[in-house]
Amino acid sequence: MATGEKSEGGGLSRRELLRAGTAGAVGLAAAGGSVAMVRPNPADTQDRQIVRGGQEHVHVMGTSGDIDTSLYDPAVHLESFDRGRTSPLPDGRTLREYEITAVDRTIEVAPGVHFDAWTYNGTVPGPTLRCTEGDRLRVNFTNSGSHPHTIHFHGIHAGNMDGVFEVVDPGDTFRYEFDALPAGVQLYHCHAAPLKRHIHKGLYGGFIIDPRDRVLEPARELVMVMNGFDTNYDGENEVYAVNSVAFHFQRHPIQLRVGELVRIYLFNMTEFDLVNSIHVHGTFFKYWRTGTRPDHYDYTDTVLLCQGERGVIEMTFEHPGLFMFHAHQSEFAELGWMGLFEVRGETVG
């Protein structure tokens, strides 16, 4: 069967037809109440066919339905950066102020599957903080949650700004102030005990420090936080994803163009499993571990990240089509950590 066909060639693509069929089925369910959950997955590449005795069955791997994106949209998180409120300091540097509030919130981690999360600013992951190397950062933290929390930033800073021993009780506030160092892909997360529970419940986010002395090549920049959710609290994840929602980018492929430079800021915030990985189909990429040394990169299509590890990927697609990206741990992939790039345009050369 055809994969990676383009839908711009006039008429409806198979994918769109499936989507249309989906909408019809959902409409029927709403109207009659007799049909529920008849929602095939739109991804062409996931349809599997078995022909036996002249009968054809279409098997659709993945979740059924879609999430309510009005509260949180993984695709929005993918390209959002919180650059803070900036003002110049007397010494010529930039002061960046961020407001972060810890709140308890029920989030949707797979269509119809809800998880009682602890969040920074209401989402998991929390906002991706972005600044430039050497900036003065001021983070005003309010704990509106039900448990004591902190914010522990990865970076170079004073001991009392480390967000470990200064536990912020519910209702209290704390101001973190430090210089943004070093340049690279850093991380912030709660460091209150029990640590595993506080991280797994959702208190983490990306923290990107752009280099001061070097201009990054313009690129389509994406934030991918690999995470998981143990929805039944048995010490194993039921849901794996990037940016929290199982199969979201399989239902809603990330739109790219042939030849476009894509830069992915990659974080591994998976709990319970020691490592996670990403594999991209149809191209190879450069990978900088932690993004701290521009001269030191890998050229590969699969990288492995320990818990808390992160890095930068840069790649371009030379061919149009639907290309998967997913954990190369098949179990994680089939439990939600799987997505698609839909690359449009003409093959280069």
Binding site: N41, V60, M61, T63, L335
Partner: peptide, 9 residues
């Protein structure tokens, strides 16, 4: 078997 699968009910 540890994989999400679409279903009808």
């Amino acid at each position: 078997d540890d994989a999400y699968w679409s279903f009808t009910m």
